[in-house]
Simulated scan of single mutants.
Amino acid sequence: MPKRAGVTALGLGLVAGATLLGTPTASSHGYTDTPISRQKLCANKTVSNCGQIQWEPQSAEGLKGFPAAGPADGRICAAGNAQFAELDDPRGGTWPATRVNSGQSYAFRWQFTANHSTTDFKYYVTRNGWDPTKPLTRAALDPQPFLTVAYNGARPAMTTVHQGAMPSGKTGRHMILAVWTVNDTPMAFYSCSDVQF
Protein backbone atom coordinates (compact mmCIF):
# COMPACT_ATOMS: atom_id res chain seq x y z
CA MET A 1 0.00 0.00 0.00
CA PRO A 2 1.43 3.42 -0.89
CA LYS A 3 2.28 5.64 2.06
CA ARG A 4 -0.51 8.14 1.27
CA ALA A 5 -3.13 5.37 1.09
CA GLY A 6 -1.96 4.10 4.48
CA VAL A 7 -2.35 7.57 5.98
CA THR A 8 -5.85 7.82 4.48
CA ALA A 9 -6.81 4.41 5.90
CA LEU A 10 -5.45 5.44 9.29
CA GLY A 11 -7.47 8.67 9.13
CA LEU A 12 -10.65 6.78 8.26
CA GLY A 13 -9.97 4.38 11.12
CA LEU A 14 -9.67 7.32 13.52
CA VAL A 15 -12.95 8.77 12.25
CA ALA A 16 -14.62 5.37 12.68
CA GLY A 17 -13.19 5.10 16.18
CA ALA A 18 -14.47 8.54 17.09
CA THR A 19 -17.93 7.58 15.87
CA LEU A 20 -17.86 4.40 17.94
CA LEU A 21 -17.11 6.49 21.01
CA GLY A 22 -20.18 8.63 20.24
CA THR A 23 -18.24 11.69 19.16
CA PRO A 24 -19.79 13.34 16.11
CA THR A 25 -17.51 13.79 13.11
CA ALA A 26 -17.57 16.55 10.54
CA SER A 27 -16.40 14.39 7.65
CA SER A 28 -19.37 12.02 7.45
CA HIS A 29 -20.83 10.96 4.54
CA GLY A 30 -24.22 10.07 2.93
CA TYR A 31 -28.01 9.61 3.02
CA THR A 32 -30.90 8.79 0.70
CA ASP A 33 -33.10 11.54 -0.62
CA THR A 34 -35.22 9.40 -2.99
CA PRO A 35 -37.33 8.05 -1.42
CA ILE A 36 -36.76 10.83 1.05
CA SER A 37 -35.16 9.64 4.28
CA ARG A 38 -36.02 10.72 7.79
CA GLN A 39 -32.70 12.55 8.09
CA LYS A 40 -33.38 14.54 4.89
CA LEU A 41 -36.89 15.40 6.11
CA CYS A 42 -35.22 16.82 9.23
CA ALA A 43 -32.52 18.67 7.28
CA ASN A 44 -34.98 20.37 4.95
CA LYS A 45 -37.24 21.29 7.92
CA THR A 46 -40.26 19.30 6.68
CA VAL A 47 -40.20 17.69 10.14
CA SER A 48 -39.35 19.59 13.33
CA ASN A 49 -37.89 18.57 16.70
CA CYS A 50 -35.12 16.59 15.04
CA GLY A 51 -32.15 17.46 17.20
CA GLN A 52 -28.63 17.25 15.85
CA ILE A 53 -29.40 15.20 12.70
CA GLN A 54 -30.99 18.27 11.07
CA TRP A 55 -27.50 19.78 10.69
CA GLU A 56 -25.72 16.60 9.61
CA PRO A 57 -28.13 14.27 7.77
CA GLN A 58 -25.15 12.45 6.28
CA SER A 59 -23.90 11.20 9.66
CA ALA A 60 -26.09 8.16 10.52
CA GLU A 61 -23.03 5.89 10.67
CA GLY A 62 -22.72 2.68 12.67
CA LEU A 63 -21.02 -0.69 12.61
CA LYS A 64 -21.44 -2.72 9.44
CA GLY A 65 -22.56 -6.33 9.06
CA PHE A 66 -26.32 -5.77 9.13
CA PRO A 67 -28.46 -7.71 9.96
CA ALA A 68 -26.10 -10.08 11.86
CA ALA A 69 -24.29 -7.07 13.37
CA GLY A 70 -24.73 -3.30 13.29
CA PRO A 71 -27.03 -1.12 15.39
CA ALA A 72 -29.32 -2.64 18.00
CA ASP A 73 -33.01 -3.15 17.34
CA GLY A 74 -34.95 0.03 17.97
CA ARG A 75 -31.84 2.10 17.13
CA ILE A 76 -31.40 1.13 13.47
CA CYS A 77 -32.52 4.37 11.79
CA ALA A 78 -30.04 6.38 13.90
CA ALA A 79 -27.33 3.76 13.22
CA GLY A 80 -27.05 3.25 16.98
CA ASN A 81 -26.09 6.90 17.62
CA ALA A 82 -27.84 8.32 20.70
CA GLN A 83 -27.37 11.88 19.43
CA PHE A 84 -29.64 11.04 16.45
CA ALA A 85 -32.32 9.19 18.47
CA GLU A 86 -35.04 11.32 16.87
CA LEU A 87 -34.67 9.14 13.74
CA ASP A 88 -35.78 6.08 15.71
CA ASP A 89 -38.85 7.80 17.17
CA PRO A 90 -41.82 6.48 15.15
CA ARG A 91 -43.80 9.65 15.98
CA GLY A 92 -46.96 7.60 16.20
CA GLY A 93 -46.55 6.49 12.57
CA THR A 94 -46.86 10.05 11.26
CA TRP A 95 -43.52 10.54 9.46
CA PRO A 96 -44.23 11.89 5.95
CA ALA A 97 -44.28 8.98 3.50
CA THR A 98 -43.31 8.86 -0.18
CA ARG A 99 -45.93 7.29 -2.46
CA VAL A 100 -44.51 4.30 -4.34
CA ASN A 101 -45.90 1.40 -6.39
CA SER A 102 -45.31 -2.24 -5.48
CA GLY A 103 -43.21 -4.09 -8.07
CA GLN A 104 -42.53 -1.03 -10.22
CA SER A 105 -39.15 0.34 -11.29
CA TYR A 106 -37.74 3.01 -9.00
CA ALA A 107 -34.63 5.22 -8.86
CA PHE A 108 -33.13 5.03 -5.35
CA ARG A 109 -30.85 8.05 -4.89
CA TRP A 110 -28.02 8.75 -2.44
CA GLN A 111 -26.30 12.08 -1.78
CA PHE A 112 -22.75 11.96 -0.43
CA THR A 113 -20.49 14.46 1.28
CA ALA A 114 -17.65 11.91 1.28
CA ASN A 115 -17.70 8.88 -1.02
CA HIS A 116 -15.80 5.89 0.32
CA SER A 117 -14.60 2.64 -1.18
CA THR A 118 -17.80 0.61 -1.07
CA THR A 119 -18.69 -3.03 -0.59
CA ASP A 120 -22.36 -2.70 -1.52
CA PHE A 121 -25.70 -1.03 -1.00
CA LYS A 122 -28.60 -3.10 0.33
CA TYR A 123 -32.26 -2.16 0.52
CA TYR A 124 -34.65 -3.82 2.97
CA VAL A 125 -38.39 -3.34 3.45
CA THR A 126 -40.69 -3.98 6.38
CA ARG A 127 -42.85 -7.10 6.48
CA ASN A 128 -46.56 -6.99 5.78
CA GLY A 129 -48.26 -6.24 9.09
CA TRP A 130 -45.38 -4.09 10.40
CA ASP A 131 -46.45 -1.60 13.07
CA PRO A 132 -45.28 1.91 12.04
CA THR A 133 -45.92 3.20 15.57
CA LYS A 134 -42.97 1.18 16.93
CA PRO A 135 -39.20 1.67 16.41
CA LEU A 136 -37.67 -0.44 13.62
CA THR A 137 -36.37 -3.91 14.52
CA ARG A 138 -34.86 -6.72 12.49
CA ALA A 139 -37.98 -8.81 13.08
CA ALA A 140 -40.04 -6.06 11.41
CA LEU A 141 -38.02 -6.39 8.17
CA ASP A 142 -38.23 -8.99 5.43
CA PRO A 143 -35.10 -11.09 6.12
CA GLN A 144 -33.48 -10.58 2.71
CA PRO A 145 -32.83 -7.27 0.93
CA PHE A 146 -35.07 -6.68 -2.06
CA LEU A 147 -32.21 -4.94 -3.88
CA THR A 148 -28.43 -5.36 -3.56
CA VAL A 149 -25.97 -3.31 -5.61
CA ALA A 150 -22.38 -4.59 -5.39
CA TYR A 151 -19.50 -2.11 -5.72
CA ASN A 152 -16.51 -4.39 -5.02
CA GLY A 153 -14.44 -1.56 -3.54
CA ALA A 154 -15.34 1.13 -6.11
CA ARG A 155 -16.36 4.62 -5.00
CA PRO A 156 -19.86 5.83 -5.86
CA ALA A 157 -20.44 9.19 -7.56
CA MET A 158 -21.31 12.06 -5.18
CA THR A 159 -24.93 11.67 -6.35
CA THR A 160 -25.65 8.01 -7.02
CA VAL A 161 -28.82 6.41 -8.38
CA HIS A 162 -29.61 2.69 -8.18
CA GLN A 163 -32.35 1.60 -10.53
CA GLY A 164 -34.36 -1.30 -9.16
CA ALA A 165 -37.86 -2.58 -8.56
CA MET A 166 -39.87 -1.79 -5.48
CA PRO A 167 -40.71 -5.02 -3.64
CA SER A 168 -43.83 -6.84 -4.81
CA GLY A 169 -46.81 -7.75 -2.68
CA LYS A 170 -46.73 -4.64 -0.49
CA THR A 171 -49.64 -2.36 0.35
CA GLY A 172 -50.08 0.45 2.84
CA ARG A 173 -47.38 2.07 4.97
CA HIS A 174 -43.91 0.55 5.07
CA MET A 175 -40.31 1.56 5.71
CA ILE A 176 -37.34 1.07 3.43
CA LEU A 177 -33.98 0.70 5.15
CA ALA A 178 -31.00 1.47 2.91
CA VAL A 179 -27.58 0.31 4.13
CA TRP A 180 -24.35 1.57 2.51
CA THR A 181 -21.47 -0.69 3.56
CA VAL A 182 -18.06 0.96 3.46
CA ASN A 183 -15.34 -1.36 2.16
CA ASP A 184 -12.24 -0.16 4.02
CA THR A 185 -13.58 0.72 7.50
CA PRO A 186 -15.72 -1.24 10.01
CA MET A 187 -18.63 1.14 9.32
CA ALA A 188 -21.85 1.44 7.32
CA PHE A 189 -24.42 4.19 6.84
CA TYR A 190 -28.11 3.65 7.55
CA SER A 191 -31.01 5.55 6.01
CA CYS A 192 -34.72 4.98 6.78
CA SER A 193 -37.43 6.12 4.38
CA ASP A 194 -41.13 5.92 5.15
CA VAL A 195 -43.18 4.92 2.10
CA GLN A 196 -46.84 4.37 1.21
CA PHE A 197 -47.54 1.63 -1.32
Rank of each mutant, 00 (worst) to 15 (best):
A85Y: 08
N49S: 12
S37N: 01
G17V: 08
N81C: 02
F121Y: 06
G92D: 03
L87A: 14
G62N: 13
Q58E: 13
R155E: 13
A139L: 08
E86I: 05
D33S: 12
P24G: 08
T159M: 10
T126M: 09
N128Q: 03
S102T: 09
L141F: 09
A85E: 11
D142T: 07
G153Y: 01
D33V: 07
N128M: 05
A68L: 00
V100A: 11
A60E: 11
A78V: 11
P145K: 01
D142I: 10
L63M: 15
I76P: 05
C50T: 00
A26T: 15
R38A: 01
G17W: 06
D88T: 03
P156F: 07
A68N: 02
A82M: 02
Q104S: 15
V47Q: 00
T34R: 14
Q83N: 14
K40T: 09
T126P: 00
G70R: 07
A69Y: 07
N44H: 12
R75I: 00
G92C: 02
G93L: 01
D131N: 10
D73F: 07
T133Q: 05
F84T: 03
S48K: 09
A97W: 01
A139N: 03
Q144P: 02
G22M: 05
C42W: 00
N44G: 11
S48M: 07
T148N: 04
A79H: 08
P135A: 03
S117V: 04
N49C: 09
Q104W: 13
F112Q: 09
S27H: 09
G22E: 05
Q144D: 09
G153K: 02
R155K: 12
C50R: 01
A157W: 01
A154G: 08
F146C: 09
F84S: 08
W95P: 00
A150F: 01
Q39I: 08
P35G: 06
D142W: 09
V100L: 14
E61W: 12
K45G: 06
G93Q: 01
S28P: 13
T34Y: 11
S59N: 15
Q111E: 09
E56W: 13
P67D: 06
G80H: 05
H116I: 13
T159N: 12
T133W: 02
G51S: 05
K45F: 10
L136N: 03
E61V: 14
A85R: 06
G30L: 08
T19P: 13
K64D: 14
E86D: 15
T159S: 11
H116N: 15
Q163D: 05
G153C: 00
L87F: 08
N128K: 04
L41M: 01
Y124F: 11
T25G: 12
K64E: 12
R75S: 12
L141R: 11
G80V: 02
C77N: 03
R91M: 00
H29C: 13
P67G: 08
F66D: 00
C42M: 02
F112S: 11
A60Q: 08
A139Y: 03
F146T: 11
R109D: 07
L63I: 14
P24M: 05
F108K: 10
F112I: 04
